Structure formats: structure tokens, C-alpha cells
Computed example of a mutant assay.
Amino acid sequence: MTIDAADLKRMFDAIAGAIEADKGRLCQLDGVIGDADHGIAMALGFGAVHDALASLDLATTEPTALLNTAAKSFLNAVGASSGPLYATAFMRAASAVKGKATLADADFNALFQALAQGIKDRGKAELGEKTMIDAWQPAAEAAAAANAAGKTLSESLEAALAAAERGAEATKDMIAQKGRSSRLGERSLGHIDPGAASAVTVIAAMKKSLA
């Protein structure tokens, strides 16, 4: 399976739609341990990406240029914490597929690894700190393992989604170490991290649009 700029645009459109539909739930989750705006911020960011990509000439746009456009528009729309995280993710992904007009399964896997690593590096978060990394890192590891085992992209993304879901669920049993929710200490127990929850929504939309 090869993926071109038009496929990536469809993927981002699918993410924007999925996040918009999930906005209320994400804000609710964030209301418990944050400032109740995570869903709004994510919807603003992916909505801006959707609008920015709509004006590109996809026939002449390489994946790298599309991903850099996504990074810039997300960051301009969202100054809050998720803005720099996802902008860094998209810029890293852009670098990972530089010079390629179309992406094979292995290239998309490299893009996916770069997304997760970008979020991790920018957020300086580790597993177990109750952040979106608790969903993104296991997802990237599962995708890499599936890809290495010769699985298709669709199967790799399925493995990634299952790992992200388990990771997000596991944040219930963690005490927040980062960001605003870290001030709650033990009161953050029992609640899913909103960033991990939105990561699952993003990965599910990616899988659905590319499968």
C-alpha cells in the first residue's frame, strides 16, 4: 500500500472529524484533572490543520510539505500545551519522510515513530507520568513490532490502537507528574488522562482512514 499527500490529507480530515465529535468527552475528562479545555484545544488545532490542507494543491505537494503545513497551522491555532507537542510531532514526521513523494508501509511506520518521539521529546515525559505519552509510546512500539514482523500497515495500526487504548486505560492508576493535573497529587488517581484519551481518538482515526 502506498500513501500520498491526498491520503494524508484524508487522514487529517478524519482526525479533525473524530476529535470534533469527541470534544465534549475530552473536555469532561480534562475538567476533572485539568482546566476543561483539552477537547477545545485539540478541535481547534485539527480544525486549523483541516482548513490549511484544504488550500494545498495535493498533486504537487509531497508528504513532508503537507506535514510541515499541519505543524505550523496546529501551533498557530493552539498556544496551549498540546500545540507545541503536536506541532513538534508533525515536524518530526515531516523529516522522517523527507524527499518521498509516496510512502510505503515502512515509511509510514517511520512517520508514526517520529510522531510519538516528537511528542515525547517536546513534553519531556516518560511512561507512567500520566500524559499522552502513556498512549503514544506503547502505540509506536506496537506499530514498530508489527512492522518488523512483516504485518501490513493496517495490522500495524490496529496493534498501535490496541496498545494506545491499554495505555490510556492504565493512566487511571497513575498519579499525574506533569502539567496542571500534577498539582492534584493522589486526587488525579482513578481518572484517565485527557491527553492519552485524545491520542487514542487520533490513532483510531488514522487507522480507520488508512485501513
Rank of each mutant, 00 (worst) to 15 (best):
residue 99 G to P: 12
residue 159 A to L: 09
residue 101 A to W: 05
residue 133 I to D: 03
residue 163 A to D: 09
residue 196 A to H: 04
residue 84 P to A: 10
residue 33 I to Q: 03
residue 157 L to G: 08
residue 165 E to T: 15
residue 95 S to E: 11
residue 69 T to D: 09
residue 105 D to F: 12
residue 140 A to D: 11
residue 93 A to F: 05
residue 43 A to K: 04
residue 51 D to H: 15
residue 154 S to K: 15
residue 175 I to S: 06
residue 162 A to T: 08
residue 176 A to D: 03
residue 64 T to V: 10
residue 88 T to F: 06
residue 113 Q to R: 15
residue 144 A to M: 01
residue 124 K to E: 14
residue 86 Y to C: 02
residue 12 F to N: 08
residue 100 K to A: 00
residue 150 G to Q: 07
residue 146 A to C: 11
residue 140 A to N: 11
residue 51 D to R: 15
residue 203 I to P: 10
residue 48 A to D: 02
residue 73 S to Y: 03
residue 124 K to V: 13
residue 104 A to V: 10
residue 104 A to S: 10
residue 125 A to T: 07
residue 159 A to Q: 09
residue 135 A to R: 10
residue 57 D to P: 01
residue 103 L to I: 02
residue 130 K to W: 07
residue 193 D to F: 06
residue 156 S to F: 07
residue 19 I to Y: 01
residue 184 L to T: 06
residue 175 I to T: 02
residue 152 T to Y: 06
residue 72 K to G: 15
residue 210 L to R: 08
residue 205 A to L: 07
residue 124 K to F: 13
residue 66 L to M: 04
residue 113 Q to G: 14
residue 94 A to S: 14
residue 184 L to S: 04
residue 196 A to L: 00
residue 74 F to S: 00
residue 144 A to H: 08
residue 75 L to V: 11
residue 58 L to A: 02
residue 10 R to G: 14
residue 192 I to H: 07
residue 30 D to M: 06
residue 18 A to K: 10
residue 11 M to R: 14
residue 95 S to Q: 12
residue 202 V to Q: 07
residue 89 A to F: 10
residue 17 G to D: 12
residue 192 I to V: 13
residue 183 R to P: 05
residue 200 V to Y: 00
residue 125 A to Y: 00
residue 161 L to G: 14
residue 186 E to V: 09
residue 198 S to N: 05
residue 125 A to D: 04
residue 5 A to P: 03
residue 60 T to E: 11
residue 109 N to F: 10
residue 100 K to N: 02
residue 59 A to T: 05
residue 116 A to W: 01
residue 127 L to D: 09
residue 188 S to W: 00
residue 64 T to L: 09
residue 134 D to F: 04
